[in-house]
Amino acid sequence: MRLQITHETLYSLTHAARRTVQYLRLTPRADRCQRVESWSIGGPERLRPWTDGYGNVVHVATETDAHDSIAIRVEGVVSTRDTAGVLPLDDGLPPDMFLRATPLTLASEAIAGFARRFAEERARKGDIAALHAMMAAQADAIAFEAGHTTAATPAAAAFDKGRGVCQDHTHIFIAACRVIGLPCRYVSGYLAAGQGDVATHAWAEAFVADLGWVSFDVANRQSATDAYVRLAVGPDYRAVAPVIGVRTGGGGEEIAVTVQVRQVQ
């Protein structure tokens, strides 16, 4: 599938800020399932690309003159391939390091209780069956509903609320995988024909021995297809956030995001 993507983020500040430093993880990864045909990123005064420890392309953006808004615009074309939701282990990232909990993916007693039901399934029917069963059960238990959680909501809190967005689903799934002993990581990206007002999408990838990284999009109850574009991988949202920044001054902010993912010939 050839996907044309336009993604704009506009931060409007209530006062002028003196300095802003941001990391932008807004460049598709060079992975087996996708090829970047063209890509551009612009907006901030100075942009410098670097690669983080997870192999994600990051731009460090700095604004040093007074500014009351920051606009970030990325656009390009990515051609994708359907890999049946499986990526081989060829990205140099040792799976076991994704067994570590982060503040956002710590399993609470409630999550552990939920996940343990699938440990037995794993022993009986194997990893893939257990993971799919867990995805279905989680999608039933946690309603996809915006407005109840934020970017800083940990898995445990979203699980208790019983509601959340793709980010919460992914964190809960990662926490649950750890309970049953499977490394699992967070993927941020785009989804053609994504649900509702979801700006950018998120899903999980669990590591299955002898197979590779298998994707689980709990919010959509499916594994990734060629409608998915991968931006960044990491242990949780915070490590892969499309934009994370620190500002000096500036007061409050309003964020307006528009994303278009269109299939093109």
Partner: peptide
């Protein structure tokens, strides 16, 4: 044992490949 390093809180994946 790989997990002793990879699951260790003192291990920083942020440094991989640098």
């Amino acid at each position: 044992p790989p997990e002793l390093v990879l699951t260790n809180d003192a291990f920083r994946p942020e440094m991989l490949g640098l």
